[in-house]
Each structure stands twice: as C-alpha cells, then as structure tokens.
Simulated scan of single mutants.
Amino acid sequence: MKLWPSFIGMLLAVVSSFTSAGGEQQRLIELLEPLASSTGQFKQITKDASDAVIQSSEGTFAIQQPGKFMWRTSAPYEQLLVSDGQTIWLYDPDLEQVTIKPASGQKDQLPIRILSGDFDLLGSEFSIQSGAATGSQQVFSLRPLAPGSLTNIDLVFDGSQLVAMHVQDASKTVTQFEFVGRRDLTTQDEAQFKFQIPEGADVFYDE
C-alpha cells in the first residue's frame, strides 16, 4: 500500500476564548522553530480502526522553513515527496510516475506543512491542547476547527525535541511517525528541495 505521506499527514480541541489557547500555540511554535533547517530519519506505522498494522515503512526527511521539505521512503517501497515551497512533487520510481501539485491549500499535507513552518495553520485550521505524556514527554493535540475535517494530529516532544507525530484520519486510521537522528542542514542538503523529473517518467498534474 502506497500513501501520500501523512506527514506523511505528517501535525488542537476547539478554539477557546481563554488566553491560555494563545499561549499553547506560541509554545508549540517555539518548539517547532528549531526544526527550521534540519534532517533526520523516520519510522512510520499505519494502523486501522481495530489497531491492526496495515503498513510500516522507514526513510529520511529534510525540512527548511518556510515551506520546503523532502520525505523519502526507502522501505518497503521507494517513494519521494518534495516541496520547494511553491510546488509539491510525488515520485514513484516503481511506477515511473510523478504527480505535481501546488503547495498551497493541500489539506492532505497539513502535518508536514506545519512542520515545515506554515504556522498560520495552527490558528486557522486547528485548536490546541497540551498535556503531559510520560516522564519528560509532552503532547500537543491538534484538533480541526471545521466540521467534517479529516485530520487529528498529536505532536510528541521529549524536552525540546520532536520525537513522534500521530495522525488520525476520518476512517480512524492512525499513522505514527517516530523521528530519530535529527541534525542541522548543510548547504549540500539544501539541494534536496529541488526536484528534477526523471527522463521517461509519466507526469500527472493534480490541481
């Protein structure tokens, strides 16, 4: 099964008039900002509504705020998701297909758009609650404001480090991401946000 990463997905309760709501949003932004220019590895597990594992994968990611990201799944299927902040490319080497989308307005990419610095989404699309998990961990729960919206996101921090993200869709399918080995981007890493369409690949446009 191959899915757009729910990044890849991939990142609140109902907006409240309490002043603490703004404080939670600002605290979350402060924790996410260090991701502004970073790369690392991820492991991904997707479970259905009965908690049965239906997909597992792993790969590498890179983020450069605002708006640039690379999400490469290496196993069990190779797949590449890239954005330069204006355009999103999804490349499937097995099928030799490239799907191209505009970066703005992609509801299925809300989690990774948040991670890559689109913090306006935190106030416009979600409400935020935070609570302790275990030990030094803290969870920020993002819940959609609009009725019928599809994505619930939980962001798990260990101290100041983002270590996991859980994304639940309308069918109660949950995709769990674990992040490890984060480091700052180098100049060479920045080339990952540019995508060259492979010769001979079929190209599809999804507006």
Rank of each mutant, 00 (worst) to 15 (best):
S16N: 07
S50M: 06
V14R: 10
S50Y: 05
R27S: 09
S20G: 02
I45R: 15
K47H: 07
L28K: 11
S38T: 15
F61C: 03
K47Y: 07
E33H: 06
S17I: 04
L31D: 05
I29C: 02
G40Y: 09
S56W: 06
K47F: 03
F61E: 01
I63S: 02
L32Q: 09
V15C: 00
W71Q: 03
F61L: 12
K47N: 06
T73M: 11
K68A: 02
G40I: 08
F18Y: 04
T19D: 08
R27T: 07
P66I: 13
A21H: 14
D51C: 00
I63Y: 12
E58A: 04
F61G: 02
G23H: 10
Q26M: 12
S38W: 11
T39H: 12
I63Q: 04
K68R: 14
Q44M: 11
D48Y: 03
Q65N: 14
K43R: 15
A75I: 10
L28R: 12
Q25T: 13
W71E: 03
P66Q: 14
W71A: 02
M10P: 05
M10F: 07
L31G: 04
S16F: 00
W71I: 06
L31I: 05
A21C: 08
E30N: 14
T39G: 14
L28I: 08
L31W: 02
Q41A: 10
S37N: 15
Q44N: 03
S37V: 08
V14K: 11
L32A: 09
Q44F: 03
P66D: 10
Q25D: 01
I45W: 07
L32K: 09
Q55Y: 13
S74H: 04
P34M: 01
S50E: 06
M10A: 10
I29A: 02
W71Y: 15
F42K: 00
E58R: 07
K47Q: 09
T39A: 14
A36R: 15
L32D: 07
Q64F: 03
M70L: 15
G59T: 01
Q26L: 13
G23N: 12
S74Q: 08
F42W: 04
S17Q: 08
D51M: 03
E24F: 09
S56T: 10
W71C: 02
S38Y: 10
Q65E: 11
K43I: 03
Q25Y: 02
Q41S: 11
I29H: 05
T46L: 10
M70S: 15
T19G: 05
D48A: 02
S37K: 14
